[in-house]
Amino acid sequence: MATTFAFAAPSLSSSSRAFARRAPIPYHRSPNHLRLPPLKCSSSEPETSVSPADWTHKFIAGAAGLGFLETSYLTYLKLTGDDAFCPVGGGTCSDVLNSDYAIVFGIPLPLIGMAAYGLVAALGLQLASDKLRFGINKSTAQAVLLGATTSMAAASAYFLYTLSTRFSDSSCFYCLLSAFLSFTLFFVTLKDLGLQEVSKTLGLQLLVATIVILTLNTSYNSSKSGSSSLAEIELPYYATEITTPSSPFALSLARHLHSIGAKMYGAFWCSHCQEQKVMFGREAAKELDYVECFPEGYRTGTKMIKACIDAKLDGFPTWIINGQVLSGEQELSELAEVSGYKESVQPS
């Protein structure tokens, strides 16, 4: 027979139930001074900013880099003898760039400018990145930068004076651009250092500028004294008449040379050029493709015409026949052999 057990929960009195409904549940309230401030979510990497000094040094490096490119181009032209492209003023750029003022003690002025701009650009980049090399500190680098820009500004002032007095009828875009860059670099460097620091080195700056101007003036005075006698050489163009009659062979050879595009380069004052024409004779010489390299006459500093420059002549006369270069006066038989002349008419 199964036995059933029953458990009865204890009952609460009505007063106990009322207390349970009304009594609040206790909890702990944090004091105000322990409350946490609102959290801000941010990146763990520190914020980076570029100081005004860094931007100044980057500007110096950029402006000097532009000057370096300009002077590199002018150095290339000076070493190769090519004419400069002048966006302003036409061909008068060459009057200045090929003058005695473009050489300082035998060194091309653009090459000196290229070295100066390169130094300033390198210093600007190193100061901007705070990675100075060769064991120099920031103050030393700034002092070198100030000295370099002072030298460039002094030289530019001297050249602007020379340009306005010696080349008043010429314009030089590259000279003006270089002067603008030099003065800009100088004043930006002064602003970067501040008035107080600049005042400490004012005497040194004046000394550097004086040395630069005296050096340039000495160089140009010495070059003038050395070339004063040559500067007076002037030969107006003249034509020499050939009276010797041409032989049938010379006339036939001249026509053959003309037909294959052979050219003879010469100068009106060259005696060997005249003797070469005399070999051909009066009629045959007129058939030759002769290129006069100084059609406007010659004076010291006069350059050959572009066709002669492009031919890269070493002297006069010069023959170019089927791509082969023959320098000096040539026998007619040699010209016939080189040009492939095979006519029945033979030299007498």
Results as ranks from 00 to 15, higher is better:
residue 154 A to Y: 08
residue 288 L to W: 00
residue 60 I to P: 07
residue 189 T to G: 08
residue 45 E to R: 12
residue 22 R to C: 00
residue 17 R to H: 07
residue 8 A to W: 02
residue 326 L to V: 00
residue 183 F to W: 12
residue 211 I to Q: 10
residue 106 G to M: 01
residue 259 S to K: 03
residue 297 G to E: 03
residue 57 H to F: 14
residue 4 T to V: 09
residue 69 L to W: 01
residue 5 F to G: 01
residue 221 N to A: 15
residue 97 L to T: 14
residue 195 L to T: 13
residue 264 M to I: 12
residue 331 E to S: 12
residue 11 S to K: 09
residue 97 L to H: 14
residue 75 T to M: 10
residue 341 Y to A: 04
residue 326 L to H: 06
residue 82 D to W: 13
residue 226 G to Q: 00
residue 139 S to T: 15
residue 52 P to L: 03
residue 310 D to K: 13
residue 274 Q to L: 02
residue 346 Q to F: 10
residue 206 L to S: 14
residue 183 F to A: 14
residue 339 S to R: 04
residue 17 R to N: 11
residue 96 V to T: 11
residue 133 R to V: 03
residue 278 V to T: 01
residue 241 E to D: 09
residue 185 L to P: 04
residue 101 Y to A: 11
residue 149 T to P: 06
residue 242 I to W: 05
residue 266 G to Q: 06
residue 338 V to W: 09
residue 84 A to G: 06
residue 218 T to N: 09
residue 283 E to H: 04
residue 320 I to A: 07
residue 10 P to S: 11
residue 123 L to E: 06
residue 117 Y to L: 06
residue 57 H to S: 10
residue 183 F to P: 12
residue 132 L to R: 05
residue 50 V to D: 10
residue 164 S to W: 14
residue 11 S to I: 13
residue 79 L to I: 05
residue 114 M to A: 14
residue 291 V to S: 02
residue 342 K to A: 03
residue 166 R to H: 15
residue 282 R to C: 03
residue 250 A to E: 00
residue 70 E to Y: 00
residue 293 C to G: 04
residue 195 L to R: 15
residue 312 K to F: 08
residue 238 Y to V: 09
residue 245 P to L: 01
residue 161 Y to L: 15
residue 200 K to A: 12
residue 211 I to V: 15
residue 176 L to R: 13
residue 67 G to M: 04
residue 124 G to N: 05
residue 21 R to K: 12
residue 61 A to M: 05
residue 255 R to Q: 09
residue 309 I to L: 06
residue 255 R to C: 05
residue 231 A to T: 12
residue 131 K to E: 09
residue 26 P to R: 10
residue 217 N to V: 14
residue 339 S to C: 03
residue 100 D to H: 13
residue 45 E to F: 09
residue 50 V to S: 13
residue 67 G to K: 06
residue 311 A to F: 02
residue 114 M to D: 11
residue 139 S to Q: 14
residue 29 R to T: 01
residue 147 G to K: 07
residue 180 F to D: 07
residue 284 A to H: 01
residue 16 S to T: 00
residue 41 C to P: 14
residue 156 S to P: 07
residue 277 K to E: 04
residue 201 T to M: 15
residue 155 A to Y: 11
residue 160 L to K: 05
residue 224 K to I: 01
residue 22 R to Y: 00
residue 148 A to M: 10
residue 273 C to D: 02
residue 18 A to D: 01
residue 51 S to M: 11
residue 117 Y to N: 11
residue 332 L to W: 02
residue 307 A to D: 11
residue 187 F to M: 04
residue 230 L to V: 09
